[in-house]
Structure formats: structure tokens, C-alpha cells
Amino acid sequence: MTDRRPYPSDLSNARWALIEPTLTAWRQERTARALAFGRPPEHDLRDLLDAILYVDRTGIPWRYLPHDYPPWETVYAYFARWQKEGVFDQLNGLLRRLVRTAEGRDPEPSACIVDSQSVKTSTNVPTSTQGPDVGKRIVGRKRNIVTDTMGLLLVVLVTAASVQDGTAGRQLLTRVAAEHPTVCKAWADMGYKNAVVEHGAALGIDVEIVRRDPATRGFVIQPRRWVVERTFGWLMNHRRLARDYEALPARSEAMVHVAMIGLMTRRLTGETTPTWRGT
């Protein structure tokens, strides 16, 4: 880490210690393959990740990165490379298992919750990757996520907001069954009934639809589903996720992973998360 004044989003030494082995191993592998064709890397991995966390937390455009970080072109290139090579997904899985173990849970979950969130997009997002969510009156994209019963991310899928929950739900369950074979139970809302329930049964996952009591009025906490709603609340503390700014859906998914990486490292080290409330 370079000698500079830290930002609130920067990793502490304890948080960096959780991530450093994975990124160092990634760099060593790439350096071994690339040294014969190019120059060795010159930027510190911690500074690069701190810059990505800064963008995710503050919501600024890449070009507006403070000058005491590495050049924005370099930071974005690493962000894109780590997304493409699954580094963020790998870190998310590693940290999730550590959090679950620290809480006295099994490293791998046996149950999950499915839900979606529609968000507006910025002007740079291609129209081919967005659409209207008629029910919520939003034109943009939809974040479909699966969490464990602690609210930790298992799978994320970003689609156009016009894609029905049932269609995305089947894709999510297919990935859950492949990546988390210990999961045998799932909860979801009414948007995932019928086809998703049947698809889950074919995969060996019992999908239970959480129904709202028609006699209730106003906001009422729904059993099990409140966990995934809380996760969306955690994500919305990151201004980059208040709207979808990424040109590619895969980069949007990476931004969700980055937010969860920041959250879980703080959870493991017992550090508080600064929020924008009251500032």
C-alpha cells in the first residue's frame, strides 16, 4: 500500500489480510505466464482493490478517481480482468464460508432465499440490456439474487427488468444446484410460483412460496424473505448500486460481489461500516 491518507472505504490491515492471499496467488500465476511477453506489474494490489471499493461505495465515474489511486484506466482494467476471471466470485465464496464458520454454521448452506430488485439505469447502458418492469414502473435492469439464511450472497444474475422472475428464477436455481449442491430448500415470493417450484423439484430443491396474508395492510415483515430484503438494503448503501451504471450486465454482477466483499471483510474483523446517513 502506498503512503497516502486512507479513505473510509479503504481496507484496513486486518481486512486486507483476508484477501491478500487470493490476489497474490492470482498475480503470481499471471506474472509467470506474462513475463516473457511484457513488463512486470507496477501497481500495488491493495491500492487497486481500494480504488474499486471507492468507486463501488461512492458511485463516482471511473474517470473521477482521486489522483492518489492508480490511474483509472489501470483500475478499470483490473476490475474487468478480475470479473472475467472469476476473482470476485472466488473471494465472495471464500469470505462467505469464513463468515458462516465464524457464526457456528456449516461452511456450505442447506437453504436459500430468492428475490429480485429492479433499478433504473444510466444513459451509457445499452438499450438492448434493459427493459420495462411494468409492475414497478421502472425501465432498467433487474438484480436477481440468491442468499443463504444469513443474507450472504450465493448467486447474482443481472437481466433486463422486463425478464420475468420465473425465467430468471429457473436460471438461478440451476446455478445454485451446480455451485452449492448442499442446498435442498429455498424460499421465494409469488413471482416464482409454478414453473420455478417445478424446476426446483427436478433439481432436488424444495421451493416454498412465502405468501402474504391478504388480511394485512401496509408493510409487514414476511417470514424468511426479510433476510434477502435486508441484503438489498446492504447493497443500496453503495451508491454505485443505487442505479445501474455498468455497460455490461456481468460488470453489474461484479459490483454486487465487490459490495458483499467489503461487507463480509468488515463483519469478519468486527469493523463498523460508515454510512451516508447523517452526513
Rank of each mutant, 00 (worst) to 15 (best):
K120N: 01
T31N: 15
G191V: 03
P214I: 10
M260D: 08
H257I: 03
D68M: 13
Y69H: 12
V256R: 02
M236W: 13
I205N: 06
A195S: 12
R267K: 14
L153W: 04
A102W: 02
F219P: 10
D106I: 11
T129A: 11
P41L: 05
N237Q: 09
V55S: 03
R96C: 07
A32Q: 14
Y245P: 01
R251C: 15
M150H: 15
T129E: 12
A102V: 00
P6F: 13
L11K: 02
T149K: 03
C112A: 08
V258E: 00
P71R: 08
L152I: 13
R224N: 12
Y78N: 10
R141S: 07
R217S: 13
G104C: 09
E253L: 07
P61T: 04
I205G: 09
T24G: 05
Q90I: 04
L91E: 01
L11R: 03
I60D: 07
T24V: 14
R217T: 13
T58K: 10
T2G: 04
S252G: 07
P223N: 05
L45Y: 05
T174Y: 08
T149N: 14
G218Q: 10
L18R: 03
I209G: 01
P214F: 03
T2W: 07
F219W: 11
K185Y: 08
L94I: 13
R243N: 03
S162H: 12
I52F: 15
R224P: 03
W16Q: 01
P126N: 08
R4E: 11
P6K: 06
A102G: 01
T279S: 06
F232M: 13
I145C: 04
P107A: 10
D244P: 12
V99S: 14
H180E: 11
D213I: 00
F37M: 04
A160I: 02
A250E: 07
T275R: 12
Q117S: 12
G151D: 09
F232P: 09
Y245L: 06
R97N: 00
D244E: 13
P214R: 02
T265R: 01
L65M: 03
P70Y: 09
A250I: 05
E198D: 11
V258C: 00
R100S: 06
R97A: 04
V139C: 14
E208I: 12
E198I: 05
R137K: 09
C184W: 14
D148I: 02
L95D: 00
A242S: 09
E198H: 09
G191W: 01
E103S: 06
D89I: 07
I205W: 11
T58A: 05
L65V: 02
F37C: 06
A25I: 11
T216A: 00
R105I: 05
D189C: 07
T129R: 15
L268Y: 09
R224I: 11
R105S: 14
D47I: 15
R243W: 06
T272G: 15
K193T: 14
T147E: 00
P274D: 02
